[in-house]
Design a protein around this nucleic acid. Structure first.
Length: 486
DNA sequence: AACCTCACG
DNA sequence: ACGTACGTGAGGTTC
């Protein structure tokens, strides 16, 4: 229902005309959990009246009329349509986030201790082998000291003008000296140890057990996504040797299971929706593997002949387009020549001309107005759009092209979260909890006997929360810890 | 506080 | 001639 309201809002209002000063004046800079209630109070009666009315009709004209009526009332209070939309969404959303934080995720501290031991041992071994290889001790954690060792003592080749020791560079040096592998291993082990294991071990018992309560920031990003701090629960390892070990630390409470639901390729679907690119739309409607399809189209091959590596290249190309990358970036990331990268990009825009049109359109609008907007009017002002510095300007343009896509993803997820929470409060109180949001994924803990039913309902809400020109696909899975989610 | 590096979507 | 991807948070070192 909320979705109808919003998509009708999308069509009826000229959102680009909305001034930022207006928003800034009417809303506090940070719409946080604390002051959400304050602001929210003014809107609650209106929201309730709307809902009561909407129960009596499925007539969209009626909804539209109500929306206009509401907008008038909001306007009389000095609020713009964007604020109406954002308040409909953000006030209840603040409560959702607050509930998630309060509940928290339970930890298996015993597993954490095991991992801690393992990593400590491994760190000692690897460190000693590094010293042995080099002939003396130094601080491997120090990029400066490491650079001295690699580039001065060992005279390994420096690529570019900075003596960077980042992973990408080290990978190129692997064959030149045995210490490189060891340093990479050291980095992998100590990263996991210091960033995840140690901080989680420092969490104190709440009596019942160990629970991690992150802090989701609603205003944490300029695209509309949330961020998560203290600790960041949106960057828990998902790949690599230790990912499943770390993930297995996060478990459901007794009698519950962990349930995960994630949108499949949501950013590319939003891109298809905005651009209306016929090839992209067609692929999604047909339920195709989008990266495979891109690889086939760009390389001019039948899909059946696309290898795993080629599909991977298709994926890299898709992300390159999404982020507005040039042939230089693509060639570096895909490990292909500049000419080939150029050729693929040209081929991409020949095939997906609608995407090219979208990019040009987004660019024009951004340069004209100085900001970019998502499908629901979420607005991002971008200072660099008026920069005379070419790099700054290009970066700003990439931001403006990407924002409607990433912002659209965020809008959709926010809507879904509010609707799912409404369902939980109504039908699953104390039996299902939303725990985490990781941009395109939601994680819950659900009473064992309700997992199947609840999963279906969540999937249904997520798929139908907005109507795009392409279908939204959602994968759900469950398990007895976070590593068991697919 | 700035910088480098690296974890995630 | 330059130097490349969008959005984040965090730990460790250096200044």
């Amino acid at each position: 229902m909320l979705s109808h309201l919003l998509s009708s809002g999308k069509k009826s209002y000229d959102l680009p005309s909305i001034a930022f000063e207006f928003v800034a004046k009417a809303l506090p800079d940070k719409l946080d959990k604390g002051d959400a209630n304050k602001i929210g109070k003014a809107f609650i009666e209106i929201v309730d009246a709307l809902k009561a009315q909407m129960k009596n009709t499925e007539n969209s004209e009626y909804v539209e009329k109500w929306f206009e009526f509401l907008v008038d009332r909001f306007k009389s209070r000095g609020l713009t349509p964007y604020e109406v939309v954002s308040n409909f969404l953000d006030i209840p959303l603040a409560r959702v986030l607050s509930r998630m934080e309060k509940r928290g995720v339970t930890l298996r501290r015993d597993r954490l201790i095991e991992i801690d031991k393992l990593l400590s041992k491994e760190t000692v071994i690897v460190t000693e082998r590094i010293y042995e290889e080099i002939g003396h001790e130094f601080n491997v954690n120090s990029p400066k000291q490491l650079a001295d060792v690699l580039f001065t003592e060992l005279s390994l080749p420096v690529s570019g003008r900075k003596r960077s020791t980042r992973e990408e560079i080290l990978n190129e040096l692997k064959s030149l000296h045995p210490v490189i592998e060891l340093v990479l291993r050291y980095r992998e082990v100590t990263k996991i140890h210091s960033t995840y294991v140690k901080p989680l071990m420092a969490i104190e018992s709440e009596g019942e057990g160990f629970v991690v309560h992150t802090d989701f920031k609603m205003t944490g990003s300029s695209s509309g996504r949330f961020s998560s701090i203290n600790p960041n629960m949106q960057n828990i390892p998902a790949r690599g040797e230790f990912a499943s070990k770390i993930r297995s630390v996060f478990v459901p409470r007794k009698g519950f299971k962990i349930v995960g639901a994630d949108y499949s390729q949501i950013e590319f679907r939003v891109m298809a929706d905005i651009s209306l690119d016929s090839a992209l739309v067609e692929d999604f409607i047909k339920g195709k593997d989008i990266h495979m399809s891109t690889a086939a189209r760009v390389m001019g091959k039948p899909e059946g002949e696309i290898t795993k590596d080629e599909r991977n290249l298709g994926k890299t190309i898709n992300f390159a387009i999404l982020f507005g990358q040039t042939k230089y970036g693509l060639s570096r990331l895909a490990g292909i020549s500049g000419e080939l990268a150029q050729q693929y990009i040209e081929e991409y825009f020949k095939t997906y001309s609608g995407v090219g049109n979208y990019i040009n359109r987004a660019k024009e609008i951004a340069l004209k107005y100085g900001y970019a907007q998502s499908m629901f009017g979420r607005t991002r002002h971008i200072a660099g759009l008026s920069s005379r510095n070419r790099n700054m300007l290009n970066a700003a343009i990439r931001e403006a092209v990407n924002m409607p896509i990433q912002g659209g993803e965020a809008d959709i997820m926010r809507l879904a979260m509010v609707e799912i929470d409404e369902m939980i409060q109504k039908k699953y109180r104390d039996r299902a909890y939303m725990l985490l949001q990781i941009h395109d994924e939601l994680i819950f803990e659900v009473k064992e006997e309700l997992v199947e039913e609840f999963s279906e309902k969540v999937k249904d809400i997520m798929k139908n929360v907005v109507k795009l020109n392409v279908p939204l696909e959602v994968n759900v899975s469950s398990g007895s810890n976070m590593s068991e989610l697919k």
